[in-house]
Simulated assay, not measured.
Amino acid sequence: MPAQRLDGKALAATMRAEIAARVAARTAKGQRPPGLAAVLVGEDPASQTYVRNKHKACHDAGLASAVHTLPASTTQAGLLELVARLNADPAVHGILVQLPLPKQIDEGAVIRAVAPAKDVDCFHPENVGLLAAGFPRFYPCTPHGVLQLLSRNGIGTAGKEVVVVGRSNIVGKPLALMLMQKPTAASPAAGDATVTVAHTRTADLAAVCRRADVLVAAVGRAGVITPDMVKPGAAVVDVGTNSVNGKLVGDVHPDVGAVAGWLSPVPGGVGPMTITMLLYNTLSAAEQIDG
C-alpha cells in the first residue's frame, strides 16, 4: 500500500485560517496588526521567490508586511543600520533577514544584531539557548512545521525512535532539541522522543535510519534516503529542497513511498508549513510585545 501523504499545503491553509482569525480578533479590539519586516540583500532568484511568498502569506492572513530590498553591494554597516531601525520600530514585531547574504557580510553578526524579541526565525543565540533549556520564546519555523505536520496527522512521537538526518543550525539541531524534550507548559510542542542525529558521514547510515519510527531527511542531497533505509510503515518527513534538471526534488527517493506509512511530498510538504510557522511566530511576537 502506498504511503499516506503528509499534505503540508492543505495543513498550511488550515493553520493560516486559524492565524487570520486570531489577527482579526486583535485588530477588532483596536490593536495594531502583527508586522513582519523582511530584508532581502541582492538578487538571488530563490530568495526573491521565498520573500515574495512570505509577503503574500502575510497579506492573506491580515499581517502587515514590508520588504526592504538592498543591493548586493550593501556593506555590513549599512545592513546593520537597517536592522537597528527595524528593532526600534514599534510597528515591526518580527524581523527576517533572508539568507544567504553576500560574502562581504558576516551572517553571524547580522543574526546577533536582530532584537531577540523580534527574531521570528529563532536564529539569535539567546533564542537558541532558550530553546535548548526548554523555555522557547519562539520555535524555529521549519522544525515547528515538521512537528505540526506530524501531530496534526495523528503521528505521535512520544516514546518513539526518531532519526534526524542532518545537523544544520536551521533544521537538524533545533528539531532534535524539540523532539527529545519533555512537553511542559513552557514548551508544549516538545516531542518526548528518543532521538538520533545522523548525517552523511554516519557509519552505516542505512542501519541507523531503519531503526526510525519517524525519519526526517534534512541533508540537502537529492534522493539520499532510499527504500532500503526505511522501516516499513515509518513516517518519513522530507525537508530537502534540491534542483535537479530544473525540477524541485527532496532528499527522499520517490520509491520510498512504497515502503513508508506516511511521506511528505516535495514540493507541497514542509515548505508551506515553514512559512505558516513564520506567520505564527510573528503573531506570537506581537502578543508578547504589545500584549
Rank of each mutant, 00 (worst) to 15 (best):
G166Y: 13
A10K: 10
P188S: 13
G30W: 12
V214A: 01
R210C: 06
T14R: 12
D204N: 13
T184V: 08
Q104R: 09
L177E: 14
A66Y: 06
F135P: 03
V120N: 01
R152I: 03
Q76S: 13
E18K: 12
A61Y: 15
L96R: 06
C58R: 06
G108Y: 06
D228Q: 13
P71S: 06
A206C: 07
H199K: 12
C122P: 11
Q148T: 12
V164F: 14
N153A: 10
D213Y: 04
R22F: 06
K9E: 14
V97W: 00
G30S: 09
Y50R: 00
N153K: 10
R167W: 01
L177Y: 01
V128W: 10
M229E: 02
G246P: 09
A132H: 06
V214F: 01
Q4A: 15
S284L: 14
T184P: 07
V163P: 05
L130C: 05
V214L: 01
S65E: 03
A38T: 14
V120D: 00
L79R: 08
D251Y: 07
T274S: 03
H199E: 07
G257E: 15
G154V: 03
L215E: 07
R26K: 09
A84N: 05
R52Q: 11
G291R: 04
P33I: 01
Q31V: 11
P267Q: 14
A12K: 02
V244L: 02
A190H: 13
E287Q: 12
V97M: 03
A72K: 08
P232M: 11
A10M: 05
P174S: 14
L263H: 07
Q76M: 14
K231L: 04
Y280Q: 09
G271C: 01
A198Y: 10
G78S: 09
G156L: 02
G233Q: 10
P143A: 12
K9G: 15
T49V: 13
S264A: 08
A77N: 07
L40V: 08
L6M: 06
L205N: 02
A25H: 06
Q98S: 06
S65L: 02
V162Q: 00
V171I: 15
L147P: 00
V120W: 00
D228A: 14
G257K: 08
D119Q: 07
A189K: 05
V146A: 07
L150C: 07
T276F: 00
D251I: 14
V83S: 04
A24C: 03
P272A: 11
P125T: 14
P174N: 12
V195P: 09
A38D: 08
V164P: 07
Q148L: 11
